[in-house]
Design a protein around this nucleic acid. Structure first.
Lengths: 229, 229
DNA sequence: CCGTTTATGGATCGCCGCTCCAACGGACGT
DNA sequence: ACGTCCGTTGGAGCGGCGATCCATAAACGG
């Protein structure tokens, strides 16, 4: 029989360690399996078999938790990217690594868009900077070029997150969702929307990852032209 | 003395018309003046001097409201863009129009990133498509190119929205916020982060709008390379 | 004039993030 | 062996959110 507090609650204490890392890891599991909206403090207390106080002792607030989980993912991406090979190829791999990570954890995209200047991204910026240098981009244009690349990656990340959110509720899978959109587009007036209408097939069949890479190549080509003559 | 309902509430009826449009317009006002987080149904009922029922009679839910407000802004952008001049210049103006609109209404950026396939953007896609055609981008590459451009614009939009959110709470103005970030960057180890460290000055002095245009130009240059030989 | 439809206001619900505090129990001095 | 701290812990409770529900009031059609 557990003793009772003044509140009439049973107060039995856990013996295993509850740590900031364990909380972040559990949060990541919830986010990955059930989506952004499933991460509530209530869900966390249930999963960790604890109370709010314990969690808030290790974590400032929900923002802190999300930011930490995001930093974790980003850090792993950077450490796992191959940096041998030419600057252009390395830049592609770097961007692709970020794309794949956000594809696997769409909530990272949403969170990154909320806080794009996280320290974890510093190494990312730094890598881009040195690679742009290697591509002979003059110093004056490097800041703009780096910003452009990051903005593009962020834009794709946000799209991914949005798509993932739509898939989570209702639609069965990506194919069904795309077909729905394509269906709507197909019914548009071809006179008023010739381009969109003509694009329906590609919307159905396109590969997000390849399209992302195509975009990266467009920007890299444009950046290459910044090289002083 | 007003008559009382069974609930004990005073039920006096308004004479002026409450319409979907009025609700959307009021929501826009709240969003513009006090930011995304200030738009609550309670705030709306207060401002409109009405109840929840009246609002929900004209609007499906909060998402519907935000989407409608966003559509409004976007529609105005497109109708206000000058389309005389060459395709390259028109594309720049189109993108710039969207940038300025989101700069003036940052919440549009956040909402657009949540629902990037809104019908209001169809005209935008359509314009991009025809302009890419005019720029001699082959049909096979047009879909990827258009998607890339939209993603880039969206990425910038999200950044703007995030910055606006940070400005709203605490920091006095943009300058102070940037200085804070720049301060942190300046204290980084120049050995480990040479690029970021060297960029501090540009972070302080750069103009978002010009940087956005620089990115558009990089994109346009990259696009030009897609032209068949 | 009365029945039907449309519009309205607000009590109320369930859930959220977060605060607050009493209770626990290991570390440690004695 | 035994206080007595103090870093942890659990959970009741708060204020605020989006959304629902329903009694009522005006508008309308015959």
């Amino acid at each position: 029989m557990a003793k009772r507090t003044a509140n009439g609650t049973a107060a039995r204490r856990r013996t295993d360690a509850l740590s900031r890392e364990l909380i972040i890891q559990t949060a990541t599991e919830i986010l990955d399996s059930d989506g952004e909206s499933a991460l509530t403090l209530r869900a966390l207390t249930v999963r960790l078999k604890t109370g709010y106080g314990a969690i808030y002792h290790h974590v400032a607030d929900k923002n802190d938790l999300l930011a930490a989980a995001t930093d974790d993912v980003i850090t792993n991406v950077l450490s796992g990217t191959v940096t041998t090979g030419g600057p252009r190829e390395t830049l592609r791999l770097l961007a692709l690594g970020l794309f794949d990570a956000i594809d696997a954890h769409p909530w990272v995209g949403a969170e990154l868009s909320r806080q794009p200047w996280r320290p974890a991204l510093l190494d990312f910026y730094e890598s881009i900077g040195s690679l742009l240098d290697a591509l002979a981009v003059p110093e004056g244009a490097r800041f703009d070029a780096a910003g452009t690349l990051v903005n593009y990656v962020l834009g794709v990340a946000v799209q991914n997150a949005a798509n993932a959110r739509h898939l989570a509720d209702g639609d069965t899978d990506r194919g069904a969702f795309l077909n729905t959109t394509a269906e709507q587009w197909a019914h548009l007036d071809p006179g008023r929307y010739p381009f969109v209408h003509a694009t329906v097939t590609q919307l159905r069949e396109h590969d997000d990852r390849e399209q992302f890479l195509a975009g990266i190549d467009i920007f890299l080509t444009g950046i290459a032209a910044l090289r002083p003559a």
